[in-house]
C-alpha cells in the first residue's frame, strides 16, 4: 500500500535529498506509524504530534494504529506559537 508522509520543522532534516516536504512510502499491509517513520529513520521520541487525515493520533494509539492505503500522515516535533 502507499501512504503519504509529510514531515515538518526540524523533522524535515530526515527527508531524502530532493524531497522538501514529504515522501510517498510503499509499505506492507498492516504497517504502523513507527514502521513508516523507521523508513526515514525518524526517532519516534521526536514525533510529538502525529495526524492522519487531519486528526490527531494520541500517544497510546501510536504503536497500534495500522495505516491504510492512501492515508496521509503528518508528523511534527514539539512546536508552539500564538
Amino acid at each position: 500500500m502507499k501512504i503519504a508522509l509529510r514531515l515538518y520543522a526540524t523533522l524535515r532534516d530526515y527527508l531524502p535529498e530532493g524531497h522538501d516536504t514529504g515522501v510517498t512510502l510503499e509499505l506492507p499491509e498492516g504497517a504502523t506509524i513507527p514502521d513508516a517513520l523507521a523508513v526515514l529513520g525518524v526517532p519516534l521520541s521526536l514525533a510529538h504530534i502525529i495526524m492522519i487525515g487531519g486528526r490527531h493520533v494520541l500517544r497510546p494509539d501510536v504503536q497500534s494504529r495500522q495505516l491504510k492505503d492512501g492515508e496521509e500522515l503528518a508528523v511534527f516535533p514539539a512546536i508552539g506559537g500564538g
Partner: peptide
Amino acid sequence: DHPVSGQGLPTYGTDVLVNILHEAG
C-alpha cells in the same frame, strides 16, 4: 528544557503554526 520554548519558538518563531493549522484543517 521545554521543547517549545527552548527549541521550537527560537528556531521558527510563531509562524511555525501555519503548517500544523493547515494539516488540522
